[in-house]
Design a protein around this nucleic acid. Structure first.
Lengths: 209, 209
DNA sequence: TGCATCGGATACATACATGTATCGTGGATC
DNA sequence: GATCCACGATACATGTATGTATCCGATGCA
């Protein structure tokens, strides 16, 4: 913490960020008003302007927090799956989809999707998002390669491309799930298709090409 | 056209809808202002309020237009592919991904994604969206079943579920493509993975279970 | 405990989008 | 070609979010 910064500052900052996540999830970024966020956090707009200069800045800060969170989570998943002795495709699929069941996950989905839309319209944001996505994807790709190797098989497609596919299924599947939660539980597509999919893009390692 | 309605009305209405698509794509729904839309269409706000009551109403009208468009397109794809004598998985994948290359496609993607976010937050909109998605999905599922049968194979998974997977890949893939267009051309994931995927979830029809 | 500074609250000025009410012009019907 | 009405333009009133300037209380340090 920088010099001359008291310890209540990080607390109110965190409160504002938490409130912002909820309000953005409920209303969307543009519809959400600074006052609503402050109200939810039990602070005045003075507190807001003392911590952030604009709503955008808050939005970016929120996304940064998500990046950290998501990196930690991905690492935890990888560690957990690799630690469980016997490597298995199902274990990966389970872990990936299970990580989507937390209550706040829906809120994060809404916020990050809105950030994605923002990024598509704004080159600068797109770079930032692409960079983050690339890191997460590479982590996933490495793990898949590792898993495949341990299963005595080998990929017939680029690992990064396959990771892109898994990410697409996850995001696209969540969209469908959240639109009709009782027809398609979150993570269902991943659970059902990851294994056959992986089987389809690998072959027995002993086979010659 | 209802009695007492002159013919310039549908023209200005269409102009407003077209302008709205562009402005919504550029700014997003909430950031877009009614005045910007009118400006783009070369009309005054008076024209707007004469045709629509709120920005939401315009938004819904735009989405309805998309529904029609998309139904026509899906029908055209199915017809085209089935007409081309030899049935093939690649032909389907090609047709599906090719349909994503029109210039206005990006704008529609942005608008419909925003509508999806709106639907996730609003039960009424969710019902409407779900109904539309279900129709499109069923159409796709029927065609897949037909294609699979013609190839002398049979599905090992529910056709609707598989259609859900394809839709997820398409939407999720487009998100990635529009964030980094030069790293992943729109439709690339579909093109690359539809065939192996279909192979993975079917088996030779002559095989006993 | 007293002092200096940080952090948050309050109040006000401003900008801006919205909606409505009214007016004028172009199109349809005779 | 004249009349009437639909349609769009213009002007104005209003609500509301934003940002800033100032004030007061809390926190940390000597």
């Amino acid at each position: 913490m920088p010099k001359g910064v008291t310890k209540r500052r990080p607390r109110t900052r965190a409160a504002l960020l938490g409130a912002a996540l909820e309000v953005f999830a409920e209303q969307g970024f543009h519809a959400a008003t600074i006052e609503q966020i402050c109200e939810r956090a039990n602070y005045s707009r003075g507190a807001f302007y003392s911590n952030f200069r604009t709503k955008e800045e808050l939005f970016f800060a929120l996304f940064d927090e998500h990046i950290d969170r998501s990196a930690e989570r991905m690492a935890a998943i990888v560690e957990q799956v690799t630690a469980d002795g016997e490597p298995s495709v199902d274990a990966l699929a389970q872990a990936l989809s299970r990580s989507r069941l937390e209550p706040s996950e829906r809120a994060w989905y809404l916020v990050t999707t809105e950030f994605t839309l923002h990024a598509i319209r704004t080159p600068e944001a797109a770079r930032k998002l692409a960079e983050h996505d690339a890191r997460a994807r590479t982590l996933l790709a490495r793990h898949i390669e590792d898993l495949v190797r341990r299963l005595g098989r080998e990929l017939t497609v680029d690992a990064e491309d396959f990771a892109r596919l898994l990410v697409a299924i996850r995001e696209g599947g969540l969209a469908q799930s959240y639109v009709e939660p009782d027809r398609l539980p979150p993570g269902e597509l991943d659970r059902r298709f990851t294994a056959p999919l992986l089987a389809a893009v690998t072959r027995d390692a002993s086979n010659a090409r």
